[in-house]
């Protein structure tokens, strides 16, 4: 058996990124699933419009469906959701009675070219390398119908780097790879909170963070600067979990779409997110 003289292979890199995402994305969502779900019940308007405008009987996917809040927006459609987190897929499936299963966006269990539409909302920014982010778009596009006349379309949302006016205050010069903390509210089970407490929870959970993160970064660099405010009030501090995000620059999602073999037919910026509707080119 020969030994590899160059241990830094693409495969090794890929593996490293998988391990990194398992630790800083998948594990976190499994732990925070019920609390996360309780704060995620209102569909975003552009996503809702996209789903409502689909013809009745269209068949589509929600890649990274979370608690499944988009799976029932338009009951005249048939939608299948998948999520990397079993915890979230379970909530979508058992609590909200949607068709949700466990899958990786890079290895979707669907026949190619069969779907009228796909959505992937706030998901692919969790992939930790440019190659994997492009691969995610390619994987989603592969599921869509390719007829030239009326191709399937994918709506993809990612978090934007440019959000100067948000509480986080990032701008185009901020680091693109960051940790965003989730402050787990103890005792907050899957029950949907009332409007007021919901707002408070949101302020607490997405505390500002300025640390950079990357699969290759050292631990000092990747430490998130997070001091949740309510720690002072609580006798026992709520645990904080950091999720890895890649923040997209203006135009980056479109460039990824083209590299993935797609064509952007509509794109925009909405509330700190970039979005694009992409068809197979």
């Amino acid at each position: 058996m020969s030994t590899d003289s160059n241990p830094i292979t693409t495969e090794a890199e890929e593996k490293k990124e998988e391990v990194y995402e398992a630790e800083h994305v998948h594990k976190v969502y499994d732990i925070i699933a019920p609390h996360f779900s309780a704060t995620r019940y209102k569909p975003w308007p552009i996503v809702e419009r996209f789903l409502r405008e689909m013809p009745a009987g269209s068949v589509g996917l929600d890649v990274g469906c979370g608690n499944g809040k988009y799976l029932g927006v338009n009951p005249s459609l048939f939608m299948i959701g998948t999520d990397r987190s079993r915890g979230l897929a379970s909530i979508a499936n058992h609590e909200f009675k949607h068709e949700a299963h466990v899958a990786d966006a890079l290895d979707l269990p669907h026949p190619p070219g069969r779907f009228d539409f796909a959505i992937s909302i706030a998901v692919i920014h969790h992939f930790s390398s440019p190659e994997r982010r492009v691969q995610a778009v390619r994987s989603i596009l592969a599921t869509l119908r390719t007829d030239k006349e009326n191709p399937g379309r994918a709506l993809i949302y990612v978090w934007a780097l440019e959000q100067k006016n948000s509480r986080r205050g990032w701008d185009e010069n901020s680091p693109q790879d960051v940790f965003v903390p989730w402050v787990l509210q103890k005792g907050n089970k899957s029950k949907q909170p009332k409007e007021k407490s919901q707002k408070q929870a949101k302020n607490l959970v997405e505390t500002e963070v300025k640390a950079t993160a990357s699969p290759s970064g050292d631990s000092a660099q990747t430490r998130a600067a997070c001091e949740p405010e309510e720690e002072k009030k609580e006798a026992e501090p709520n645990p904080v979990y950091n999720r890895y995000y890649h923040l997209y620059k203006q135009g980056e999602l479109g460039a990824d779409a083209v590299e993935a073999g797609g064509k952007v037919i509509e794109a925009g910026y909405e509330k700190d997110n970039h979005w694009a509707i992409i068809i197979p080119a």
């Binding site: 593996k15 998948t82 079993r86 897929a89 058992h94 299963h101 466990v102 990786d104 269990p109």
Partner: peptide, 18 residues
């Protein structure tokens, strides 16, 4: 083989199949 439990199928692949 992809297991199905509590109505939920798991399509994650072991590393050697990816």
């Amino acid at each position: 083989e992809y297991p199905i439990s509590q109505g939920i199928a798991n399509f994650l692949l072991p590393n050697h199949l990816v």
